[in-house]
Write a protein that binds this DNA or RNA. Structure first.
Length: 299
DNA sequence: AGAATGACCTGCGCGC
DNA sequence: TGCGCGCAGGTCATTC
């Protein structure tokens, strides 16, 4: 579920709690919660326990906490790595008191206990109803630009609020793709962080039909679309993300407010806020697209 | 290379 | 009340 704004809210909430913390215990209650972990390099819990955390990072919908190099004295053990998380559709990272019991709430798949130099002991609970999300320990790999990302994130494009996102290259790539524009927006190799909600919202704002071939858009239209993507992501972030139910919450369990600001997504049959025409919902890529049939014409 | 499909899961609301 | 169906913020592997 969570898209860039929701994941960023989680990252910001984790930062003060986990940065400089030491992992004192790791409990995995459901192995499906660590399907991204490569067991050939050692068990998730064993490798994480005792490690020291640095400031959490994010690219698109992936979030990771780099770890202080472990066993610097042990030859071959010093490769930089990170605790990687993808929330999938229903994953949550929640801060809990150290004494809180995982069995007292549903779907707690992993518990990570932390000791911190400047605040009380606490635990991070990874909750996930549908188990599409996953944690892993993953090796950090340097990019061409000099930053480091987990190996599983290498194929993910930079997101549009990354200072190193290349606007010109992205706009040029749109010109070369004959795929439907929404398909391109959802392809995390082209631009990351945009999911079904914000794709529909940005396309509504830019008055582009979701199935319009990317290459058929004018330069001005693609420019407008990128601007609208940034606007909607930024606004959602300041409002704490989009929550329809209890599935998306921040690290303290609180919902975001952006659902009240949606113009197209989830508004089938309700009037377009711009022109009053009922919003339609169509099936596309095994999910739903919402758009205004009057403002967003296929050309 | 791009497109289509299915797999991975649980839970909710709806109509019957 | 209970059952089956469709639907849900995502990613990845496999096929054509």
């Amino acid at each position: 579920m969570p898209e860039l704004p929701e994941v960023e809210v989680v990252r910001l909430g984790l930062a003060p709690a986990v940065t400089d913390a030491i992992v004192t215990a790791v409990d995995v209650y459901d192995e499906r919660a660590i399907t991204r972990h490569d067991h050939r390099r050692g068990s998730f819990a064993d490798r994480l326990t005792g490690r020291s955390m640095l400031a959490p990072q994010r690219r698109g919908k992936f979030i990771w906490i780099p770890l202080e190099p472990a066993g610097r004295l042990a030859a071959g053990e010093g490769r930089p790595d990170a605790l990687l998380a993808h929330l999938g559709m229903t994953g949550q990272l929640l801060l809990r008191d150290a004494w809180a019991r995982p069995e007292d709430e549903p779907h707690v798949r992993v518990r990570i206990e932390l000791r911190h130099p400047s605040h009380a002991e606490l635990a991070v609970f990874f909750r996930d109803q549908r188990t599409f999300g996953s944690l892993a320990l993953d090796e950090l790999v340097s990019t061409d630009a000099g930053d480091a990302v987990p190996s599983q994130v290498l194929h993910i494009a930079r997101d549009p609020i990354d200072p190193l996102f290349d606007d010109r290259a992205f706009l040029a790539s749109l010109m070369r793709k004959n795929s439907a524009i929404k398909r391109v927006l959802l392809d995390q190799r082209a631009i990351s962080g945009v999911g079904n909600i914000y794709a529909d919202e940005a396309l509504w704002a830019a008055r582009i039909h979701p199935e319009q071939p990317a290459s058929s858009l004018s330069r001005a239209k693609t420019r407008l679309l990128l601007d609208e993507i940034r606007l909607v992501l930024g606004k959602a972030l300041t409002e704490g993300g989009t929550s329809f139910d209890a599935q998306y919450v921040n690290v303290n369990g609180q919902a975001g407010y952006f659902a009240h600001s949606l113009n197209a997504y989830g508004r089938e049959g309700r009037p377009c806020p711009r022109c009053g025409t009922p919003i339609v919902r169509v099936s596309f890529m095994n999910r739903s697209s919402h758009y205004c049939p009057r403002d967003q014409r296929l050309r």
